[in-house]
Design a protein around this nucleic acid. Structure first.
Lengths: 181, 181
DNA sequence: ATTTTATATTAGGATAATCTAATTAAATTT
DNA sequence: AAATTTAATTAGATTATCCTAATATAAAAT
């Protein structure tokens, strides 16, 4: 007791909206020379007054240094949050595009929403899974490509180039099994 | 003009909180004889007055039939939403547990959050992907099990039972390539 | 150095979802 | 049937996020 929420930082968890703003600011900071209210507003798809009040809130929590009419700068902590959101976004985006073969813009939108809700555990699992697919000799690029084919026509082992070329031995065994059954 | 939002149903999209309530009510309806405020509150982890006001809102939108002090019943439309949420939840839960090997309770929580944010497109893609893994001769159960091993020790082709047993021909070729490079 | 334009801030409200405390209604017990 | 317990509702606030309209400041153009 007493330690819980004295004068320290991060008393309450950030809202996901706040995380969104920090991510956007983090991105703008990397892209542009200065970060301005107008640009945050357009990225977040909100009006400028909304940004102003959010900046005040973020300033109170020491996530940005903000004084009115001056450019916005992230604090160490704020930048940390922004970077973390970027990282998560990246993982999810790659999963959606590289694995699930979702188109870029759609994937970007979905990643935005998921990046707040997924736990570190799940994210780690997803990362491992992607690495596994890329590392395991049974899958990798070729297998992933055949997924696209699968989505169009359904899986037909006889027509699966990759399988019949690279795994003739096993495929033959499969066929035998199928016939037996 | 005029057609847009006259006296018809679904003028505004439902909030994800509303979707959550409908899903919970849908579940309770299937589990219990009657659906009561108290149970909704406990499932949603909110207090009863919150439920009461939400029920009023859902009633106004014709998603539930609700009159005070009476049991709650879903309308056709409300049940549809609940069922849809269940369906999404199921897909995501299976992905998290069967594929990513996340533990049940965690998976359940994550699925709850994701079910609102993912588009139908992504969900479809995910379903296809799961089917692909289960159908493709190169993956399936055994491959999925080896993912768990991979998560613990990293991938070591020499130690990968499944690979070395079922794909000796190709694995050997891989090794040769590796040596060459 | 004025004027104009672009950018940002205040002021004041709205909505969605939640809470606590107090009250009422329904169900159960005695 | 009266008393008690459980369940549900009202009343009244709070927090987070957003808005519009009006105003102020800063930057650019004349």
């Amino acid at each position: 007791m007493g330690v819980t929420a004295a004068g320290k930082n991060e008393e309450k968890p950030l809202t996901s909206t706040m995380e969104d703003y920090l991510e956007v600011i983090y991105d703008l900071d990397a892209e542009k020379k200065v970060v301005r209210v107008k640009d945050i507003a357009s990225r977040m798809d909100v009006k400028m007054p909304t940004v102003t009040s959010m900046l005040r809130a973020l300033n109170d929590r020491h996530l940005v240094d903000y004084e009115k009419h001056e450019y916005v700068r992230l604090t160490e902590e704020g930048a940390g949050v922004g970077r973390e959101m970027r990282r998560r976004h990246g993982i999810l985006f790659r999963f959606l595009t590289d694995i699930l073969k979702i188109d870029g813009p759609t994937a970007d939108g979905e990643a935005c929403k998921m990046e707040h809700t997924l736990s570190e555990t799940t994210l780690k699992s997803l990362t491992d899974f992607m690495e596994f697919i890329q590392t395991c000799p049974r899958t990798g690029e070729s297998w992933l490509n055949s997924f696209e084919e699968f989505r169009k026509v359904g899986l037909d082992a006889d027509k699966c180039d990759i399988c019949s070329e690279k795994f003739p031995c096993w495929l033959d065994q499969q066929k035998a099994d199928t016939v037996k059954t």
